[in-house]
Structure formats: structure tokens, C-alpha cells
């Protein structure tokens, strides 16, 4: 199972801060496709996905127990 976290504006789109999904063995790109199918209002082009607190690439594969986070454009400082 994969734990998903949504932050800031993305959390307001999904309506939830986190959920657990059965996407073990899928790629980060497939996770994004899954998420946009479930939440059509998620905008592409500016969202990054972190896996286990590190920015991931689209081809990275998700392993059981991974924590994936949807990172909208950051605005700290």
C-alpha cells in the first residue's frame, strides 16, 4: 500500500490531507494519472511528487509502504 499526502491548494482540491491506496509497483507517472483521474481539478505542469521525502522522477517505481506527497509550487520565505 502507498500512503498519499496532499498539501496546500492541492489538499483543497482533493478535500483530504491523506489517503492510502493500492498502487504498489506502479510508477510515479502512473500515480499522477491515477490522481488526476480521481481528482480532475488537479493541475499538471507545476506539481511535483515526493516519495519518502525526496523529489521523485516520473519513471520511479513505488514500493510497498512508500509515502508519496503531492507538492504544489512552493512559496516559502
Amino acid at each position: 500500500m502507498i500512503e498519499l499526502h496532499y498539501f496546500a491548494g492541492l489538499r483543497e482540491v482533493t478535500g483530504i490531507a491523506q489517503e492510502t491506496v493500492d498502487l504498489t509497483g506502479r510508477t510515479v507517472e502512473e500515480l499522477w494519472q491515477w490522481a488526476t483521474a480521481k481528482y480532475p481539478d488537479l493541475q499538471s505542469g507545476s506539481v511535483r511528487i515526493a516519495v519518502n521525502e525526496e523529489y521523485a522522477l516520473p519513471a520511479d517505481v513505488l514500493n510497498d509502504g512508500d509515502v508519496a506527497a503531492f507538492i504544489p509550487p512552493v512559496s516559502g520565505g
Binding site: 483543497e12 507545476s46 511535483r48 522522477l57 509550487p73 512559496s75
Partner: peptide, 15 residues
Amino acid sequence: EWIGHQKKKPKEELL
């Protein structure tokens, strides 16, 4: 409003 897009991101990380 949530603020974003203050800096350009590395392209290969974007989806």
C-alpha cells in the same frame, strides 16, 4: 489565495 510559482522548477521533476 495559496501563493506559488515564485521560482521556476527543474523541468524533469514536473509532471
